Amino acid sequence: MKTLILVRHAKSSWEYPVDDKDRTLKLRGIKDAHLVSNYIADKIETPEVIYSSIANRALHTCAIFTRTLKYPFDKVIIKEDMYDFGGSGLVETVKSCDDAVKTLMVFGHNHAITAVANTYGSQFFDNVPTSGTVVIQFDINSWNEIDEGKTILKVFPKELK
């Protein structure tokens, strides 16, 4: 059994003229990330491995979640392939995860997060919103075998306000 926790980065700012990878989180995004991470803290298995996109907004979201989950941020694996908007880099990252890992958490971007949630989960989402978290369970032994899984939890910030 494998569990994949998908997290879309929190709401980011377009206020400053910076490279896309350097965009920061808005205050609303910071608050939403705290809201969702606090909500899921006792509802999920603590991930054994966490991957994050290299983008500032994903890393900041990841830092908020790891603090809440008491997961050491210095153990987060930052992956260029997670800076992915279509989903193929995200899927390849998941499939390459060590099979000893039972629970994997990833911090990424849309459309990739929504596409992976819809392709591999049992619940359809028009859009996974910023700070949205979707948990999918797979009855497999190897991450390379991910196929049709079961969506066991979805948490969107709007539902918690």
Rank of each mutant, 00 (worst) to 15 (best):
residue 23 R to G: 05
residue 91 V to N: 08
residue 93 T to G: 02
residue 42 D to A: 04
residue 75 K to Q: 04
residue 15 E to H: 02
residue 136 I to V: 06
residue 126 D to Q: 05
residue 24 T to S: 11
residue 59 L to A: 04
residue 61 T to F: 10
residue 26 K to P: 02
residue 18 V to H: 03
residue 145 E to N: 12
residue 104 L to A: 08
residue 12 S to W: 15
residue 71 Y to V: 01
residue 44 I to M: 07
residue 69 L to C: 04
residue 54 I to Y: 13
residue 92 E to P: 14
residue 96 S to F: 04
residue 95 K to Y: 10
residue 91 V to P: 15
residue 131 S to F: 13
residue 6 L to I: 00
residue 13 S to C: 04
residue 157 P to A: 11
residue 51 Y to A: 08
residue 154 K to D: 00
residue 74 D to H: 13
residue 89 G to E: 05
residue 34 H to D: 06
residue 78 I to N: 10
residue 134 V to F: 06
residue 52 S to D: 01
residue 80 E to G: 06
residue 43 K to W: 03
residue 146 I to N: 03
residue 3 T to S: 01
residue 25 L to F: 12
residue 81 D to S: 15
residue 143 W to Y: 09
residue 60 H to D: 09
residue 39 Y to G: 13
residue 58 A to C: 07
residue 118 N to L: 09
residue 61 T to Y: 06
residue 23 R to T: 02
residue 36 V to H: 02
residue 25 L to M: 09
residue 145 E to I: 13
residue 42 D to F: 07
residue 98 D to F: 02
residue 43 K to T: 03
residue 139 D to S: 10
residue 155 V to C: 14
residue 103 T to F: 03
residue 158 K to M: 07
residue 39 Y to R: 14
residue 119 T to Y: 14
residue 22 D to T: 06
residue 43 K to Q: 00
residue 59 L to T: 01
residue 130 T to F: 01
residue 33 A to H: 11
residue 79 K to Y: 13
residue 16 Y to D: 13
residue 31 K to Q: 02
residue 61 T to N: 08
residue 142 S to T: 09
residue 53 S to K: 01
residue 87 G to W: 04
residue 99 D to R: 12
residue 147 D to A: 05
residue 91 V to H: 06
residue 90 L to A: 12
residue 63 A to L: 06
residue 139 D to R: 00
residue 158 K to F: 10
residue 94 V to D: 04
residue 41 A to M: 10
residue 77 I to Y: 14
residue 117 A to S: 07
residue 38 N to H: 01
residue 97 C to S: 03
residue 34 H to L: 02
residue 105 M to W: 01
residue 108 G to Q: 09
residue 94 V to P: 03
residue 34 H to F: 14
residue 44 I to G: 04
residue 161 K to R: 15
residue 122 S to I: 00
residue 93 T to S: 10
residue 53 S to R: 12
residue 95 K to I: 05
residue 45 E to F: 05
residue 33 A to G: 09
residue 111 H to C: 00
residue 108 G to I: 08
residue 76 V to R: 08
residue 105 M to A: 09
residue 21 K to V: 02
residue 87 G to Q: 04
residue 154 K to V: 04
residue 50 I to P: 14
residue 82 M to R: 14
residue 31 K to H: 15
residue 137 Q to M: 09
residue 36 V to P: 02
residue 156 F to W: 00
residue 121 G to S: 02
residue 27 L to C: 08
residue 9 H to E: 03
residue 9 H to Q: 07
residue 40 I to W: 05
residue 62 C to Q: 14
residue 67 R to M: 10
residue 50 I to D: 04
residue 35 L to F: 02
residue 73 F to C: 08
residue 43 K to R: 14
residue 24 T to P: 10
residue 100 A to N: 08
residue 114 T to N: 05
residue 105 M to C: 03
